[in-house]
Design a protein around this nucleic acid. Sequence first.
DNA 1: TTCTGTCGATCAATCAGTTGATTGAGGCAG
DNA 2: CTGCCTCAATCAACTGATTGATCGACAGAA
Lengths: 193, 193
Amino acid sequence: MKKKPAAEPAPVDRRQDLVAAAYQQIARLGFEGLRTRDVAAAAGVNVATLHYYFPTKEALIGDVLKHAMQRFRSTMPASGSPSEQLRNHFAGIRRLVREEPELFAVMGELALRSARDPAIRDLYQQTTNIWQSTVRGLLAKAVRDGLVTGSRNLDAQASLVVSALTGASMIPLSRPARLNETIAELERSLGLN
Amino acid sequence: MKKKPAAEPAPVDRRQDLVAAAYQQIARLGFEGLRTRDVAAAAGVNVATLHYYFPTKEALIGDVLKHAMQRFRSTMPASGSPSEQLRNHFAGIRRLVREEPELFAVMGELALRSARDPAIRDLYQQTTNIWQSTVRGLLAKAVRDGLVTGSRNLDAQASLVVSALTGASMIPLSRPARLNETIAELERSLGLN
DNA sequence: TTCTGTCGATCAATCAGTTGATTGAGGCAG
DNA sequence: CTGCCTCAATCAACTGATTGATCGACAGAA
């Protein structure tokens, strides 16, 4: 009665469901509040089933981590002139914060945990390193094309961009407008207007 | 043998010791790894003694929160011209990150937790609101005195400062130089050189 | 039959918080 | 001073609840 065992057209990917459930749980309650039972229940299965797909809780977290990082990389710029790409990147983050705030809650949790957990640190740092050098590369190209008011220090500019976006997206804001203001001022200071 | 019961000049403030122990524990392991027994042991007392001073774990965390926030406010600028105060503020944070990194680990934990815990949210947001408006006030004064290259939007500039410093200090950095670069670029973009 | 997926039941470990007892310092009456 | 009382502070041991993980059973598909 509680489940139709057969004739299910979409065979539901349990693995994916469990990762998604854990992801939501972390977004709402942090790692502190992550319970295997709750994750299993949210995915509509028994705890034992969770352990059928993931040997340990850590293994499940590993998959959540991969999922979050991959999701985050989708904000990386793609096409257009360098300064357009930068503006699109900023707009992409702004949109993602609005439409998918859970991602940044999870990213924040992962960022803090990366200080203690080597497995998380590797993937997290890899992602932010790519981020930083991507921004730096775009700034370099933009300067070369004479599109922005170039500073002498591209590393410093890229660091400011990454720091500001990190701080404004991953940390809960007391001032709701802060993200928009931060991005606006970032664009101004880079001469992207 | 382990303690001189009488004639003790410093009668050890247990309450303070317990808060300090919890503070260090959070800095090292996050809220996830905060165990009342470990805190008590680190303070050299029994769990029951901890509960003698703090009715619950939450009450203990409350005192840790107050301690951390008060500590953080010590970076707030004090004297000098507006632009000097801003530079001093940045230097103060840079120094504190170097000399007392635990504070920012704890601040990061509290910041994330503030999204779920109303008790933490109140104090945390109050602190960041004061921070933001202090920076904004200094920028306003600096512009009035003609000391910096003023932008039209002081709120946006203050938001960038707060976002960038938050992101560069509370989130573990993959790129160690990022904090210095961020501050340097912040000063440049505000015309503080 | 055998393999895959699922579940109810259960275990061992861990945790926050409690209980009852002990210790030592200070007050104070004799 | 001495003996008695009180009380803040402390501890060892326990409780009740929760948690991650495991086991054996069982159903359906191949």
